[in-house]
């Protein structure tokens, strides 16, 4: 498919340079050394750090989602930057431990803070920040809320460095990024986990970075459309990948088998909510019953299933 990216330069470039300059001027740039994040090479040149199955707090400093990078002959692409500036700095150190090639791209798979708050650590590299065309509007509606939530969870000192970095390269449909002898195929999806999900396929190793379109082990969060997510998983199953890097879960897993648990869970939510609605039940009744037997299969289930059922209820009553 033809490249259909929207290039925001030069205005976004100028804005970004301004942010970078102010970071530099006020001395909030990367610490000289940060402890490198442990990363696992899931395929040649494809490195993944697996986040913890926890909520963001002061101890984990937002290290709760997978992030990593792909190394080409000429350049490096970061794929998700971690859940805090600190995690971003540590990811950058991990990259520097493996390669001195320039970091030309920071790809954000979607808007959630555990995937994007490390962006600020890469400003000195002056990369393109690449995201789904809807990401900027989604962050306009949520950025301040995310910043306050991070402050409350991690503390004011760590939050002082948080910046919401606007994308410089927005993907409307498809985009190829050439890292030198290595092409990444980016695909923007319609509303699913969120309304700005972006996947990355490394052609050379057939590794699919699914972002939060794939949760494993940790209970998923529906922040877009449950029906859209199920449709997107159908389409994603056809992507010719040998392995997948989930947004949450192990560093990699065979594709498409890795999505089986998620599909089953989302299906149960839809089916359960429809049953409650057919009986004129309430949201609270749905929250109390729907998908309850999935509890032993997921970490943090009690935190996320009630939210998912509520979101699905509001969506499905418009069917």
């Amino acid at each position: 498919m033809a490249a259909a990216a929207t290039f925001l330069r030069p205005s976004a470039r100028a804005a970004l340079a301004g942010v970078w300059l102010s970071v530099w001027l006020f001395g909030a740039a990367a610490p000289a050394t940060a402890d490198p994040l442990p990363v696992f090479e899931v395929a040649p040149g494809v490195f993944v750090h697996a986040g913890r199955h926890e909520e963001t707090d002061a101890t984990n400093a937002g290290d709760i989602a997978n992030c990593g990078f792909v190394v080409g002959d000429d350049a490096v692409a970061v794929i998700d930057s971690g859940g805090s500036p600190i995690v971003g700095h540590r990811l950058r150190e991990a990259i520097r431990a493996h390669t001195d090639r320039p970091i030309r791209y920071v790809v954000n798979t979607h808007m959630h803070p555990d995937h994007i708050l490390g962006n600020v650590a890469f400003l000195p590299d002056q990369p393109d920040f690449v995201a789904h065309g809807n990401l900027q509007a989604a962050l306009a509606a949520r950025g301040e809320h995310y910043r306050q939530a991070f402050d409350a969870a991690v503390g004011a000192a760590a939050a002082a460095e948080v910046r919401i970095i606007p994308p410089t390269l927005a993907v409307a449909d498809r985009l190829e990024l050439d890292l030198g002898g290595r092409v990444l195929d980016l695909a923007a999806w319609s509303v699913a986990h969120s309304d700005n999900d972006l996947t990355v396929l490394d052609r050379r190793t057939k590794t699919l970075w699914a972002g939060d379109l794939l949760f494993m082990e940790r209970a998923p969060a529906i922040d877009g459309s449950v029906l859209g997510w199920l449709r997107t998983l159908d389409a994603l199953a056809a992507v010719p990948a040998a392995r997948v890097v989930p947004g949450h879960g192990p560093p990699s897993s065979p594709w498409p088998d890795a999505a089986a648990d998620l599909r089953r869970y989302l299906g149960r939510v839809v089916e359960g909510v429809r049953e409650v609605q057919a009986a004129h039940g309430t949201i609270q009744q749905a929250v109390d019953t729907v998908a309850a037997d999935e509890a032993p299969r997921w970490r943090l289930f009690e935190s996320y299933n009630p939210r998912n059922v509520t979101a699905a209820f509001a969506e499905l009553e418009w069917e």
Partner: peptide, 22 residues
């Protein structure tokens, strides 16, 4: 918890469907 924000989940649909009632 978990970064749930009081914001639209599907901004395009919200505009497309505006005013419809059930």
């Amino acid at each position: 918890g978990g970064c749930s924000a009081p914001a639209l989940k599907n901004a395009q649909l919200a505009v497309a469907r505006m005013g419809k009632m059930k």
